[in-house]
Design a protein around this nucleic acid. Structure first.
Lengths: 225, 225
DNA sequence: TAGATTGTTAATCGATTAACAATC
DNA sequence: TAGATTGTTAATCGATTAACAATC
């Protein structure tokens, strides 16, 4: 009688983090090829622009199924659909934007999100002077309104652009409101239950990493992922 | 007679990219410990908050020297100084901000940069309506003014927040002006000579990665690096 | 001294690459 | 058919971890 199994065994092969990271890069590159008028690509073409090996591109894609045609390559629109499905971005994701500082206001107006299946559906801030005001067509709501908004708008994901010193408190409220994933811009290590997903983007860290590359003359293009 | 040697051999052990990425995380965490009143830490304490193993923390640090004291741990301020030195952030780096859209304006006002040894020293935009205006105490300059500014201000690094369709053109100008490192926010794959460093931060990609984590219930905290 | 913790070695684990039969 | 390119295996390479002697 088989006992409890490790979670990993349940969904067959779980893709390594590095592979998933590259999936997004492939998707962007496919858009570029498509914009250039191509309808098919080879693993080699994709690999070249991204400075990878063709074998790696094929192996990454093979994690999720067979999308290519031997001797031919990949049909761009089919492959895009397959990658979007693998990532979960084959549907529209409504986003809660929390924290209306400089970065928060910039994100409200950031056009790229919409182009990739995201839509800021509601914005929140705890500053009473901001609550009730309208920023780029959004009426700013108190964070207390979050549990209700999560339900009515079907929110699972939040972008967090609050000051560092209140970030953990706000995260706790997000989680208890039903948010399951947080894109965190506050430069602090957040603590969440293990089933909650957090990705932290720290812009100072990116500059630091760039300084390291420049200082050590180890040039080249890399992707924060 | 020894022939040409591989570059790697020249500077002894070149730290792997993953190690350098964690260095920044250690630095942030040391700040947090210090703010909490500690003056010493163990590799175990650092590892715990960042969800790593103590051996990894020690091994990472050992790439750059011996900073710890057996039986004692690490002196926080010494370790901070050592990491900053390793990263190259033990001095102030003036930054060129190029592109005054929403994101560019948010970055101008982003306080964290200054806290970590960066200072936006000049801002540039190609829109004639913006050139000459003053944004947050900075007079917006034409990109044509870049070569001169690079010299007089000692700029090596630029943050690039221009629209995707002009990003490559602007990059070419940055490089020919003497810029050696670019933090790119345009969601396109840039082409540069191998001695130029580029780190690309694509916010839509970060959201995509978050969706993947949420969808596959593989929670936990991760750092974009 | 006993307890704590480093720096480092060797073992393990995972990710990348080369190579190639299968296919168009 | 000849040429191109996939999906996949096996070999290589690199990164993480466990373990421990050395040190405070």
């Amino acid at each position: 009688m088989p006992n409890e199994r490790k979670k990993k065994a349940m969904d067959r092969k779980l893709a390594p983090r590095a592979v998933v990271g590259r999936l997004s890069l492939y998707l962007r590159q496919l858009e570029a090829f498509q914009a250039a008028g191509q309808s098919r690509v080879s693993s080699n073409q994709i690999a070249e622009v991204l400075q990878l090996r063709d074998a790696q591109v094929r192996k990454d894609l093979a994690f999720f199924g067979q999308f290519g045609h031997p001797g031919i390559g990949y049909q761009i629109d089919d492959l895009q659909a397959a990658i979007r499905k693998a990532l979960g971005t084959d549907r529209l994701w409504p986003i809660a934007l929390v924290g209306l500082g400089n970065l928060g206001r910039a994100l409200i107006r950031y056009r790229e999100f919409e182009r990739h299946g995201f839509r800021i559906a509601a914005v929140f801030d705890n500053d009473p002077r901001k609550v009730g005001t309208v920023v780029s067509d959004y009426e700013v709501q108190s964070i207390d309104a979050l549990p209700e908004a999560v339900k009515t708008l079907g929110l699972s994901i939040a972008a967090l652009t609050v000051p560092s010193d209140v970030a953990q408190d706000v995260v706790n409220k997000l989680v208890s409101s039903g948010i399951r994933g947080i894109l965190n811009f506050a430069p602090v290590a957040l603590r969440v239950q293990p089933e909650i997903s957090v990705i932290s983007v720290d812009l100072s860290i990116q500059l630091e990493q760039l300084v390291y590359k420049v200082t050590h003359a180890s040039g080249g293009v890399s992707y924060s992922n």
